[in-house]
Design a protein around this nucleic acid. Structure first.
Lengths: 111, 111
DNA sequence: ACTAATAGATCACTTGATGATATATTACCA
DNA sequence: TGGTAATATATCATCAAGTGATCTATTAGT
């Protein structure tokens, strides 16, 4: 799927939502909306992203809290998925740090 | 190009590199390598990204420091580009914050 | 019975990413 | 002066990812 580089924004947000606990597709969509209201996650992007995360072994399907769930499919972050998420969070943190020091250096630059 | 959502990783890194001052294509590539060694930015991605950033008005071409530059093309972040970069940095910072609080909540979760 | 919200899925199209390759310039060293 | 590595820009072809639109069905509330 990817080496070590940045996660696709949609994949990142889905993993972040699932880091808060098991969720089903639609629940992820609502959660992502809260996490980043500017990011519009439609069903097409959501389900293709879930598919890719499943294939990569970063999430897995689990049985829902209520047994005999009719239609909902619940997902959980795997150990691998969690370490990918943590790595991405650290990468972001590092970028933010660099961005801040960059801002100081370019504050007087002519635009 | 995009509404307000996340920047493409390559576009973000190019803007971040240029936030440190005017650079030419190859210089951007080397800078990005320093900023994020895990991100492999080849010429194809670099120049298509530059093209897109130019079209979006987020960067512009400027004359290099040495007059009569033979082949190098220098670029500078525009006001619009800078505000997009700042917005992205804030978005990332917010994601990192949410990721950290999420980690606490899911610390005891069964994997 | 009607309506809105919930839930999952897919098609077709657009956009973005990228390996490979090409071309030319410049720097350096023997 | 010839060779070579690094610099510098560019593009093609292909693959991966993103997404609007649309479909079907279920559930909850009125």
């Amino acid at each position: 799927m990817e080496k070590t580089g940045p996660l696709q924004p949609a994949a990142f947000l889905v993993l972040l939502a699932l880091a808060g606990g098991d969720r089903h597709g639609y629940g992820i969509m609502q959660d992502v909306r809260k996490l980043d209201p500017a990011f519009e996650l439609g069903p097409a992007t959501l389900y293709t992203t879930i598919q890719r995360l499943l294939e990569g072994g970063w999430i897995k399907e689990v049985s829902g809290p209520e047994s005999g769930e009719r239609r909902r499919r619940y997902y959980r972050v795997t150990r691998e998925g969690n370490s990918v998420l943590q790595a991405e969070l650290q990468r972001m943190e590092s970028m933010v740090r660099k961005g801040k020091s960059m801002r100081l250096r370019s504050a007087e630059a002519t635009q």
